[in-house]
Protein backbone atom coordinates (compact mmCIF):
# COMPACT_ATOMS: atom_id res chain seq x y z
CA UNK A 1 0.00 0.00 0.00
CA UNK A 2 2.62 2.51 1.10
CA UNK A 3 5.04 1.55 -1.67
CA UNK A 4 2.41 1.95 -4.36
CA UNK A 5 1.40 5.26 -2.81
CA UNK A 6 5.02 6.44 -2.92
CA UNK A 7 5.44 5.18 -6.48
CA UNK A 8 2.33 7.01 -7.66
CA UNK A 9 3.43 10.19 -5.90
CA UNK A 10 6.81 9.96 -7.63
CA UNK A 11 5.17 9.39 -11.01
CA UNK A 12 2.80 12.31 -10.48
CA UNK A 13 5.70 14.54 -9.44
CA UNK A 14 7.63 13.55 -12.56
CA UNK A 15 4.62 14.20 -14.81
CA UNK A 16 4.08 17.55 -13.10
CA UNK A 17 7.74 18.45 -13.71
CA UNK A 18 7.51 17.49 -17.38
CA UNK A 19 4.37 19.59 -17.81
CA UNK A 20 6.17 22.56 -16.20
CA UNK A 21 9.14 22.18 -18.55
CA UNK A 22 6.83 21.93 -21.59
CA UNK A 23 4.96 25.05 -20.48
CA UNK A 24 8.15 27.06 -20.07
CA UNK A 25 9.50 25.96 -23.47
CA UNK A 26 6.12 26.73 -25.05
CA UNK A 27 6.15 30.22 -23.54
CA UNK A 28 9.71 30.84 -24.73
CA UNK A 29 8.73 29.81 -28.26
CA UNK A 30 5.68 32.09 -28.21
CA UNK A 31 7.87 34.97 -27.04
CA UNK A 32 10.34 34.37 -29.87
CA UNK A 33 7.57 34.05 -32.46
CA UNK A 34 6.02 37.32 -31.28
CA UNK A 35 9.39 38.99 -31.61
CA UNK A 36 9.62 37.75 -35.20
CA UNK A 37 6.14 39.14 -35.97
CA UNK A 38 6.96 42.43 -34.27
CA UNK A 39 10.22 42.75 -36.24
CA UNK A 40 8.24 42.17 -39.45
CA UNK A 41 5.80 44.97 -38.62
CA UNK A 42 8.75 47.29 -37.90
CA UNK A 43 9.85 46.93 -41.53
CA UNK A 44 6.36 48.00 -42.63
CA UNK A 45 6.43 51.06 -40.38
CA UNK A 46 9.72 52.21 -41.91
CA UNK A 47 8.56 51.59 -45.50
CA UNK A 48 5.47 53.76 -44.85
CA UNK A 49 7.74 56.46 -43.50
CA UNK A 50 9.73 56.39 -46.73
CA UNK A 51 6.52 56.82 -48.74
CA UNK A 52 5.54 59.85 -46.63
CA UNK A 53 8.91 61.48 -47.08
CA UNK A 54 9.03 61.36 -50.88
CA UNK A 55 6.47 64.09 -51.83
CA UNK A 56 8.34 66.61 -49.65
CA UNK A 57 11.68 65.64 -51.12
CA UNK A 58 10.43 65.92 -54.69
CA UNK A 59 8.76 69.30 -54.01
CA UNK A 60 11.94 70.77 -52.50
CA UNK A 61 14.24 69.46 -55.22
CA UNK A 62 12.02 70.16 -58.26
CA UNK A 63 12.68 73.92 -58.23
CA UNK A 64 16.41 73.38 -58.45
CA UNK A 65 16.48 70.42 -60.83
CA UNK A 66 14.65 71.54 -63.97
CA UNK A 67 16.19 68.94 -66.25
CA UNK A 68 15.58 65.82 -64.21
CA UNK A 69 11.94 65.12 -64.99
CA UNK A 70 12.62 61.43 -65.68
CA UNK A 71 14.23 60.93 -62.29
CA UNK A 72 11.23 62.48 -60.50
CA UNK A 73 8.77 60.48 -62.59
CA UNK A 74 10.59 57.24 -61.77
CA UNK A 75 10.44 58.03 -58.05
CA UNK A 76 6.77 59.01 -58.06
CA UNK A 77 5.79 55.97 -60.12
CA UNK A 78 7.74 53.56 -57.93
CA UNK A 79 6.19 55.15 -54.84
CA UNK A 80 2.61 54.72 -56.02
CA UNK A 81 3.39 51.17 -57.16
CA UNK A 82 4.82 50.38 -53.71
CA UNK A 83 1.84 51.95 -51.93
CA UNK A 84 -0.66 50.09 -54.09
CA UNK A 85 1.08 46.71 -53.81
CA UNK A 86 -1.24 43.91 -52.65
CA UNK A 87 1.03 40.92 -52.14
CA UNK A 88 4.33 40.60 -50.32
CA UNK A 89 6.29 39.75 -53.47
CA UNK A 90 4.70 42.68 -55.32
CA UNK A 91 5.63 44.99 -52.46
CA UNK A 92 9.18 43.64 -52.36
CA UNK A 93 9.63 44.29 -56.07
CA UNK A 94 8.14 47.79 -55.93
CA UNK A 95 10.19 48.76 -52.86
CA UNK A 96 13.28 47.54 -54.69
CA UNK A 97 12.48 49.80 -57.63
CA UNK A 98 11.82 52.72 -55.29
CA UNK A 99 15.17 52.22 -53.59
CA UNK A 100 16.85 52.13 -57.02
CA UNK A 101 15.14 55.36 -58.09
CA UNK A 102 16.09 57.11 -54.84
CA UNK A 103 19.73 56.10 -55.05
CA UNK A 104 19.84 57.36 -58.65
CA UNK A 105 18.29 60.62 -57.46
CA UNK A 106 20.96 61.01 -54.77
CA UNK A 107 23.68 60.58 -57.38
CA UNK A 108 22.13 63.26 -59.60
CA UNK A 109 21.94 65.68 -56.66
CA UNK A 110 25.73 65.89 -56.72
CA UNK A 111 25.42 68.01 -59.92
CA UNK A 112 23.36 70.71 -58.18
CA UNK A 113 25.49 72.64 -55.67
CA UNK A 114 22.65 75.14 -54.98
CA UNK A 115 20.38 72.31 -53.91
CA UNK A 116 23.08 70.82 -51.72
CA UNK A 117 23.41 74.16 -49.92
CA UNK A 118 19.64 74.40 -49.24
CA UNK A 119 18.94 73.91 -45.51
CA UNK A 120 15.52 72.33 -46.11
CA UNK A 121 16.98 69.89 -48.57
CA UNK A 122 19.85 68.97 -46.25
CA UNK A 123 17.34 68.22 -43.50
CA UNK A 124 15.31 66.07 -45.92
CA UNK A 125 18.45 64.29 -47.07
CA UNK A 126 19.29 63.39 -43.47
CA UNK A 127 15.73 62.11 -43.00
CA UNK A 128 16.04 60.01 -46.16
CA UNK A 129 19.40 58.56 -45.08
CA UNK A 130 17.92 57.84 -41.66
CA UNK A 131 14.87 56.14 -43.18
CA UNK A 132 16.92 54.01 -45.57
CA UNK A 133 19.11 52.93 -42.63
CA UNK A 134 16.06 52.22 -40.48
CA UNK A 135 14.64 49.99 -43.24
CA UNK A 136 17.97 48.14 -43.50
CA UNK A 137 18.26 47.74 -39.71
CA UNK A 138 14.63 46.67 -39.35
CA UNK A 139 15.33 43.96 -41.93
CA UNK A 140 18.54 42.99 -40.11
CA UNK A 141 16.65 42.74 -36.83
CA UNK A 142 13.94 40.63 -38.47
CA UNK A 143 16.54 38.19 -39.80
CA UNK A 144 18.23 38.07 -36.37
CA UNK A 145 14.91 37.25 -34.70
CA UNK A 146 14.13 34.60 -37.32
CA UNK A 147 17.54 33.02 -36.64
CA UNK A 148 16.91 32.85 -32.87
CA UNK A 149 13.41 31.47 -33.43
CA UNK A 150 14.49 28.87 -36.02
CA UNK A 151 17.41 27.77 -33.85
CA UNK A 152 15.03 27.19 -30.96
CA UNK A 153 12.50 25.26 -33.03
CA UNK A 154 15.24 22.96 -34.37
CA UNK A 155 17.31 22.27 -31.23
CA UNK A 156 16.51 19.26 -29.11
CA UNK A 157 14.23 19.68 -26.16
CA UNK A 158 12.36 22.62 -27.65
CA UNK A 159 12.07 21.00 -31.10
CA UNK A 160 9.69 18.39 -29.58
CA UNK A 161 7.44 21.10 -28.17
CA UNK A 162 7.68 23.07 -31.42
CA UNK A 163 6.52 19.95 -33.32
CA UNK A 164 3.61 19.37 -30.92
CA UNK A 165 2.24 22.91 -31.24
CA UNK A 166 3.11 23.54 -34.89
CA UNK A 167 5.76 26.23 -34.51
CA UNK A 168 6.87 26.24 -38.13
CA UNK A 169 10.16 27.47 -39.51
CA UNK A 170 10.18 31.10 -40.72
CA UNK A 171 11.91 32.40 -43.83
CA UNK A 172 14.63 35.04 -43.86
CA UNK A 173 13.96 38.34 -45.62
CA UNK A 174 16.27 38.18 -48.63
CA UNK A 175 16.95 41.35 -50.58
CA UNK A 176 15.41 41.41 -54.03
CA UNK A 177 17.61 43.45 -56.34
CA UNK A 178 21.34 43.93 -56.51
CA UNK A 179 20.86 47.61 -55.73
CA UNK A 180 18.86 46.70 -52.65
CA UNK A 181 21.78 44.77 -51.24
CA UNK A 182 23.49 48.08 -50.56
CA UNK A 183 21.68 51.06 -49.09
CA UNK A 184 22.02 54.02 -51.46
CA UNK A 185 25.30 55.76 -50.89
CA UNK A 186 24.19 59.12 -49.59
CA UNK A 187 26.83 61.69 -48.90
CA UNK A 188 26.20 64.61 -46.63
CA UNK A 189 28.43 67.59 -46.33
Amino acid sequence: MTTTAIASIVIFALLFLIVLVVISIYNALVRLRNQVDNAWSQIDVQLKRRHDLIPNLVETARGYMKHERETFEAITKARSAAMGARTVSEAGQAEGQLADALSKFMLVVENYPDLKANQNFLALQEELTGTENKIAFARQNYNDQVLFYNNRTQMFPSSVVAGMFAFTKRDFFEVETAAEREAPKVSFA
Binding site: E127, F137, A138, N141
Partner: peptide
Protein backbone atom coordinates in the same frame (compact mmCIF):
# COMPACT_ATOMS: atom_id res chain seq x y z
CA UNK B 1 20.10 67.46 -33.64
CA UNK B 2 17.97 65.41 -36.08
CA UNK B 3 20.90 63.19 -37.06
CA UNK B 4 21.45 62.06 -33.46
CA UNK B 5 17.77 61.18 -33.15
CA UNK B 6 17.84 59.26 -36.43
CA UNK B 7 20.97 57.34 -35.47
CA UNK B 8 19.55 56.44 -32.03
CA UNK B 9 16.33 55.23 -33.65
CA UNK B 10 18.29 53.18 -36.20
CA UNK B 11 20.17 51.44 -33.40
CA UNK B 12 16.98 51.03 -31.36
CA UNK B 13 15.48 49.19 -34.36
CA UNK B 14 18.62 47.10 -34.94
CA UNK B 15 18.67 46.12 -31.25
CA UNK B 16 14.91 45.44 -31.23
Amino acid sequence: HPQLFNVVEEMKIAAG
